[in-house]
Amino acid sequence: MTDEMPNIDRASLHLPETGKLVLPGEPDHKPRVLMLCGSLRTRSYSRFLTQEAKRVLEALGAEVRIYDPAGLPLVSDDAESHPKVTELRELSLWSEAHVWCSPERHGAMTGVMKTQIDWLPLAPIGGVRPTQGRTLALMQVCGGSQSFNTLNQMRILGRWMRMITIPNQSSVPKAFAEFDESGRMQPSPYYNRMVDVMEELMKFTLLTRGRAEYLVDRYSERVESAEALSLRVNQRSI
């Protein structure tokens, strides 16, 4: 851990104590985290921040996968079966938590970030919604002074996607000054805040993943399902 994360004070990094967060009989595998990054640039500070967060999550006991958005098409009817769309949706179904990290461009998230989110439907895939009930952590990088525009936008989307978006978040201003030539984040309060966010994500994920389906169960959908079943059962044969 010391070699991989030189900015970490190991004595202050506490591993989640699952015994304090979950009930007997709940999942005991590593929390599954999908990370989405909103940039395709070669030297991408949002990707660098995502990679730093991945190291922290793995140190905290998570299984992490970063989706590469290169080649993902814009949303259209004829791209539903595109391999990059299939890959993204399968990763979301696999996951129990997400981390979204985007640069702020023109006061908003990037098109790369929004396209990834747009490809994750609210409708079930194989009977399972690809985002509902999953925890979500948000991060952004800024080219200039600190801003929260992108975080606010992504928080709205997280709610719309029926995700459990954690309260803490990370915004890194003047990102070009926070990473060295190799892409590693330097020690700073911004680094510590990123660690805070990943730590909180892990705790919320452990708290909710065994009961997420119950937490997001909705009366309106149960009524609609009952009505649909009644119509199907009682329809007359032709």
Rank of each mutant, 00 (worst) to 15 (best):
G71Y: 01
H106G: 00
R211S: 04
L207I: 15
R193S: 06
I66V: 15
S76F: 10
E80R: 15
T50K: 02
M198Y: 02
R10S: 07
I8V: 13
G107E: 06
S12C: 05
S237T: 15
T86C: 03
S237Y: 14
R232I: 02
R162H: 06
R211G: 00
S188I: 01
R129K: 09
R159G: 12
A108K: 02
Y214T: 08
T131A: 15
A137I: 04
S225I: 10
G111W: 03
F148I: 08
M35A: 11
L215Q: 06
P189Y: 14
A226V: 11
A177S: 13
L207A: 13
Y190N: 05
M5P: 02
D68K: 09
M154V: 10
L13V: 10
S171T: 15
N152R: 15
M139Y: 14
Y191A: 00
I8T: 09
R89Y: 02
P16K: 08
Q153F: 07
L91N: 04
W160A: 07
M1F: 09
Q146I: 12
L15W: 08
R162S: 04
R55N: 09
R155P: 02
L138M: 07
C101A: 13
N7P: 00
L206D: 01
V216L: 02
G38V: 02
T86Y: 01
I164Y: 11
E90S: 03
Q235K: 14
E227R: 13
V172K: 09
G144R: 08
E63T: 02
V195I: 07
R41Y: 00
G111A: 11
D77Q: 10
I166F: 10
P189I: 15
I238G: 01
T165F: 05
E199W: 13
T50M: 12
L23A: 14
A62S: 12
E104G: 03
C101N: 12
M5Y: 01
L215M: 15
M202F: 10
T115P: 03
K20P: 00
M139E: 08
T18Q: 15
I238R: 09
T165L: 04
S76Q: 14
K30T: 01
C37L: 04
L207H: 07
P187E: 09
P27A: 07
F176L: 03
A97H: 11
E213P: 00
M109C: 06
A53Y: 09
R41F: 00
G143F: 08
I238E: 00
P24E: 02
P24F: 07
I166Q: 05
S145F: 11
L57N: 01
P173C: 12
I156V: 14
E96H: 05
E52L: 03
Q153H: 06
R184Q: 09
A123V: 11
K30A: 11
K30D: 01
S92I: 11
A70C: 04
L21S: 00
V64M: 08
R89E: 06
L91K: 05
W119G: 01
R232D: 08
K20F: 12
G210V: 05
Y67A: 01
A79W: 05
L60K: 12
A123I: 04
M185D: 06
